[in-house]
Simulated scan of single mutants.
Amino acid sequence: MLKAERTEYILHRLQALYPETPVPLDHKDPYTLLIAVLLSAQCTDERVNKVTPALFKRADNPAEMSRLSVKEIEALIKSCGLSPQKAKAIQRLSEILIEEHWGEVPCDIDALERLPGVGHKTASVVMSQAFGVPAFPVDTHIHRLAQRWGLTSGRNVSQTEKDLKRLFPMDQWNRLHLQIIFYGREFCTARGCDGRGCDICQACYPNRKSPKKTKKA
């Protein structure tokens, strides 16, 4: 297949498999989504969803969260890993939202990226899933699959994001980034597929003889 043919096939195959794309992280508004995405760094969504109910029971808005101490937040999120750093970021970003944004999560990717603990991927997820702004957050699943499917050279996640944005229509980005994540978790896992095992890898590269080596994010 040519790259354009692979792109079209992947788009239709993922739509058939995942016509619905529920947000994996439990949340009720942009703020709780922001906190959940921050917590998901180097942690599974399942673990985050077990941790956030207790956290949000104590504080589910910037005003209440900013009144908690870093130690209190850390105790509530400890099982997510990296809890000291995440607790500091959550407490300080909550203060900044009050000081600079009237207690609201800004619908602005640059403003989001200036918040403590919020990198480009986290900001992109919030823009996409909280505000519906077209974005293509690239996590480890997307970075890996984009290489296996010949959609990017995979030098880094920034390059992968640029390549995917060029290939796919903007109105598909928000849905597609979740569909690729779902597929990567279910069928094209890091160890369960080497670029020759899952249906999409086989369809895109039916004559691939050797495992596809992928560059880490």
Rank of each mutant, 00 (worst) to 15 (best):
V118R: 01
L145R: 03
E104V: 12
A89T: 06
G117K: 03
V126K: 00
E161G: 05
V105M: 12
W102M: 11
R114K: 15
R155F: 07
R114F: 02
M127P: 00
D139E: 14
D108H: 08
I142W: 01
D163Y: 05
K121A: 03
S158W: 12
S94T: 11
K165P: 02
S128Q: 10
E161S: 05
Q129M: 14
T140L: 08
P116V: 05
E113V: 13
S158F: 14
T140W: 03
G103V: 10
R144T: 08
E99M: 11
F131N: 06
Q129V: 11
H143N: 09
G132L: 13
M127Y: 04
E99C: 08
V105A: 07
H143T: 04
I98M: 15
K162I: 14
K162M: 12
S128W: 02
A123Q: 00
A146G: 13
G150N: 09
I96P: 02
C107S: 12
F136M: 10
A135M: 12
E113I: 13
E100A: 14
L145V: 09
E104N: 13
N156I: 05
L164S: 01
A135R: 00
K121G: 01
I90V: 15
H101P: 08
F131Y: 15
V157W: 04
I142C: 12
V157R: 03
P116L: 06
H101S: 12
L112W: 01
E95Y: 11
T152S: 15
D108M: 09
